[in-house]
């Protein structure tokens, strides 16, 4: 079983996402939520870094946090799965550990 990494900070605000992508083992999962959902959006300065990491880790993003910020599910980077709170719970049970990148 692999680890679940959760990131709740904007990549513009902190280097949490960059550190997470640098250190997350191949095959693990990354969930972006709260201000972290900004990292899941297309056409930002950080989109390429996320798209490039997609070959090593699987990405998820919490839909309600996207909507709250006036962002659009349709602008999520291709290959990132949009999930809800139930999906969040499922992810935590499916992985051996949860690591939070503050």
């Amino acid at each position: 079983m692999s680890a679940l990494h959760i990131v709740n900070k904007s990549p513009f605000e902190r280097n949490s996402l960059a550190s997470c992508l640098r250190l997350a083992a191949k095959g693990s999962a990354v969930l972006l939520f709260e201000d972290g959902v900004i990292g899941a959006m297309k056409n930002t300065k950080h989109s390429d870094a996320v798209a490039n990491a997609m070959s090593d880790v699987s990405f998820y993003v919490l839909g309600p946090d996207i909507k709250a910020r006036g962002l659009n599910d349709g602008n999520v980077i291709d290959g990132i799965k949009v999930i809800d709170y139930d999906g969040f719970v499922d992810l935590t049970t499916e992985h051996k550990s949860v690591q939070s990148w503050l």
Binding site: S10, F12, E13, P64, D65, A68, G70, N72, D84
Partner: peptide, 23 residues
């Protein structure tokens, strides 16, 4: 400026996160 620009986006919908939509 910076991430502050997200405060002014249209169509914010906070029903899913249970917070007041102050936009």
């Amino acid at each position: 400026a910076d991430d502050g620009v997200y405060q002014l986006t249209k169509n914010q919908d906070t029903d899913g996160i249970g917070m007041k939509n102050f936009s």
